[in-house]
Simulated scan of single mutants.
Amino acid sequence: MTETVSFGYREVAPEEKTKLVGGVFSNVAKNYDIMNDAMSGGMHRLWKDQFVRRVKPREGETILDMASGTGDIAFRMAARGARVTVSDINEDMLDVGMARAKKRGLEGLTWQPQNAETLTFDDRVFDAYTIAFGIRNVTDIPAALREAHRVLRYGGRFFCLEFSSTTWPGFADIYDAYSHRLVPKLGKMIAGDEESYRYLIESIRRFPDMPRFAAMIGDAGFVQVKAEPILGGLVAIHSGWKV
C-alpha cells in the first residue's frame, strides 16, 4: 500500500483516510437515503434493481453484502430467499439499516460490523459477495478485493456496483458540472452537510475507470471479469468468479 491515498482530491495517510471516511458516513447516515433520491432523481433504485438481477440471488444461498450501508441491496436479495450477511465498517449506517429493516418487518438478516480490508470470516464461506457504491471509499481497495476472493467458495461470484466515468459525448460535461456545483449544495440544503457530499463527488473522480478497476479485480484472483456500463459508464456493474 502506498504512503498516501486519496481522500477526494486530497492525499492523506491511509489511517487518516479510514477515520475521515468514517466521519463522512456518520455525518450523512440519517439523511443518506433521502440524498440518494435527490442526487440521482431516484435512478439509484433502478440501478440497484438491475444490479440484483445480475447477482441472481437464490433461495438458501449465503451472500455477504459489504459496505451495505442502510441495506438497500441486502433487502432486495433477502426478498429472493438468500441468507444475507449485512456488513459495513460504519455502525451508524448499520443502525439506520437495522431500523429500516425493523420498520419493514424484515427478518433473517445477519448484521455484522466489518472492515472490508480485514474480514473476520473464515475462508470459503459465501456463495456471493456484493458491494454497491462502497468500494471507492475503501482505503486499500486491492486488499478488499483479495478478502472478497478469500471468503468466497469455489464457484462463488463477485459483484460490484460503483460510479465510473461516462463515455457519452456531452453527457460527461453536463454531469461533471452538476455533480461538482449542485450536489454539495443539495447536501447543505437537505442534510446540512456540504463538505461530506463534496468528498463523495470527489471520490468518484478519483476512482479507477472501468478497464483499470476490472484489471484490479483480476489481480485479486477473479476470472471472467466483466464490466457492464450504465449511462455510458456513469455507473458500472463489475463481476468476476472464483474458480
Score class of each variant (00 low, 15 high):
145 L>T: 01
167 T>V: 09
177 A>T: 14
111 W>G: 00
95 D>W: 12
85 T>M: 06
163 F>R: 04
95 D>Q: 09
99 A>Q: 00
105 G>K: 11
178 Y>D: 09
116 A>H: 01
93 M>Q: 01
101 A>Y: 04
166 T>V: 12
89 I>C: 11
122 D>N: 15
173 D>L: 13
140 D>C: 12
169 P>Q: 03
97 G>D: 04
119 L>Y: 03
103 K>N: 12
78 A>S: 03
143 A>P: 13
96 V>W: 00
183 V>E: 10
157 R>V: 07
80 R>Y: 03
95 D>Y: 15
98 M>Q: 15
182 L>M: 15
94 L>S: 03
135 I>W: 10
161 L>W: 00
146 R>G: 06
157 R>E: 11
108 G>M: 00
154 Y>E: 13
101 A>D: 05
177 A>I: 14
78 A>P: 02
177 A>K: 11
178 Y>F: 14
98 M>E: 08
156 G>M: 03
84 V>E: 02
100 R>D: 04
159 F>W: 06
118 T>W: 14
181 R>D: 06
186 L>H: 00
186 L>G: 01
86 V>L: 15
156 G>H: 02
105 G>Y: 13
150 R>C: 08
168 W>N: 08
124 R>E: 14
159 F>K: 00
77 M>L: 13
128 A>R: 03
178 Y>L: 08
152 L>S: 00
77 M>N: 00
114 Q>E: 11
178 Y>M: 09
162 E>R: 08
162 E>S: 04
185 K>N: 13
91 E>P: 00
155 G>P: 06
159 F>E: 04
170 G>I: 10
138 V>M: 11
178 Y>R: 03
149 H>E: 05
174 I>M: 09
119 L>P: 08
120 T>I: 11
